[in-house]
Design a binder for these strands. Structure first.
Length: 298
DNA sequence: AGTGTGGGCATGCTTCCTGA
DNA sequence: TCAGGAAGCATGCCCACACT
C-alpha cells in the first residue's frame, strides 16, 4: 500500500491553503519536504497531481481523485483521534456496570451519584448480573466492569480489589440467637432464612456455610428488596445473611442485631473486574478509586 | 553495519509584481 | 516595456532515524 495518511493530510492542506509554503507552515515541515512528498506520489503512480503552470497549484484529475479521498478520510481519522484522546482523558465515554449481588446497590447507587457529579459526560448504566452470565458481556465489551466477590481466572480480565467485607447473620434484637457469640450451621436448621430471590447456588450462605455442613434451614423466604428483608428480620419473621455494609445503618439504630457466621466469620472481598486494556482509562480507574475511598470510610 | 525513508539545507528556475 | 526584487516550487545532496 503506498498512499499514506500523511500524504493525504499534505494534499488536503496544499489544496485548501493554495500553495506549498503555507501548507508546509501549517504542517510544521519545510516547503522542500512537502514538495518531496508530492513528487514521490507522482513518481510512484507516474501521474501529476498538480498543474504547475502558474504560481497557484491546480489539481489534475488524478489530484482531484486523491483530494476527494483525503476529504473523506482525514476528517474521520481526526474525529476518531479526538474521540480516543477524550476517552483516554476520561472526558467522554461510558461505564456499563454489571453487579452480581443485590446488596451492592446499597453502596453502589450513592457512589454513582458522586461519580456522575465528577464525570458528567460519562454515560453510566447498571445491570443486575445475577440473572445473566456477565463474563461473555465483559469479554465482548458490552459491559465495562463486573462488580463481584468471585475472583475467577479469566484471560485479559483484571480483578481490582475494592474492599473487604464480612457476611453476618442479621436477627431481631430479641431473637434467641442473640445469646450466641457466633452462629453455627445447625443453628439455622430451626429458623426461617430470608434471602434474595435468586437460585440457591448463587447464595454464599448456602455455598460456604450451610451446604458444606449438610444443613437446610427450617424454611426459606425470598424477597426482592434489602429494606424489606431488614424489616422482616427486625420483626422476627426470619433471619438473613447480609454483608456488613448493608447492616451498618440498622445496627447503628439498634433495630436489629447481628452475629458472625462461624467461629472465624465469613469474610470476602469485593472486586471490580475490568478488561486489561481498559484498566488505564481515566474514568474507569476513577470509579475504582472512588469505590475504594467510599468503602474504606465505612 | 547496511539499507531505506523522511525531511532539511542550499540553490536554481519560473512567475508575478512594481516602479522607472 | 523592461529590470529588479519577491514569492513559490523543484531538485540534489546530506543527515538522522528506524529497521533488519
Amino acid at each position: 500500500m503506498f498512499i499514506e495518511l500523511r500524504q493525504l493530510r499534505s494534499l488536503k492542506a496544499i489544496y485548501e491553503l493554495g500553495n506549498l509554503t503555507r501548507a508546509a507552515q501549517q504542517l510544521n515541515v519545510t516547503q522542500s519536504a512537502l514538495s518531496h512528498q508530492i513528487r514521490s506520489i507522482e513518481r510512484y503512480f507516474g501521474l501529476s497531481l498538480f498543474i504547475r503552470k502558474q504560481k497557484q497549484l491546480q489539481l489534475t484529475v488524478a489530484g482531484e481523485r486523491l483530494f476527494a479521498l483525503a476529504q473523506r478520510i482525514v476528517p474521520q481519522v481526526e474525529e476518531t483521534e479526538l474521540a480516543l484522546q477524550r476517552m483516554a482523558e476520561g472526558s467522554t465515554g461510558r461505564l456499563n456496570i454489571a453487579i452480581e449481588c443485590h446488596s451492592c446497590f446499597d453502596w453502589l447507587l450513592p457512589l454513582l451519584d458522586q461519580y456522575r457529579e465528577r464525570w458528567p459526560n460519562i454515560e453510566v448504566d447498571v445491570r443486575l448480573g445475577i440473572s445473566l452470565d456477565p463474563w461473555p458481556s465483559l469479554a465482548s465489551g458490552d459491559i465495562d466492569t463486573v462488580i463481584t466477590s468471585d475472583k475467577t481466572e479469566q484471560s485479559d480480565i483484571v480483578f481490582e480489589s475494592l474492599f473487604d467485607y464480612e457476611a453476618l447473620l442479621a436477627v431481631a434484637r430479641d431473637h434467641p440467637l442473640t445469646s450466641k457469640q457466633y452462629i453455627e450451621p445447625h443453628d439455622l436448621g430451626v429458623h426461617t432464612l430470608i434471602t434474595y430471590a435468586v437460585p440457591q447456588h448463587q447464595l454464599d450462605i448456602f455455598n460456604y456455610f450451610l451446604t458444606p455442613a449438610n444443613v437446610e434451614p427450617a424454611s426459606q423466604r425470598s424477597v426482592e428488596l434489602t429494606a424489606l428483608m431488614l424489616q422482616l428480620v427486625a420483626s422476627g419473621r426470619g433471619v438473613a445473611a447480609l454483608p456488613n455494609w448493608v447492616l451498618a445503618d440498622s445496627l447503628a439504630k439498634n433495630t436489629i442485631a447481628a452475629r458472625p457466621l462461624g467461629r472465624k466469620g465469613m469474610h470476602g472481598t469485593m472486586y471490580a473486574a475490568v478488561r486489561q486494556y481498559q484498566r488505564q482509562l481515566a474514568h474507569i480507574n476513577e470509579f475504582i478509586v472512588m469505590a475504594r475511598q467510599r468503602m474504606s470510610l465505612n
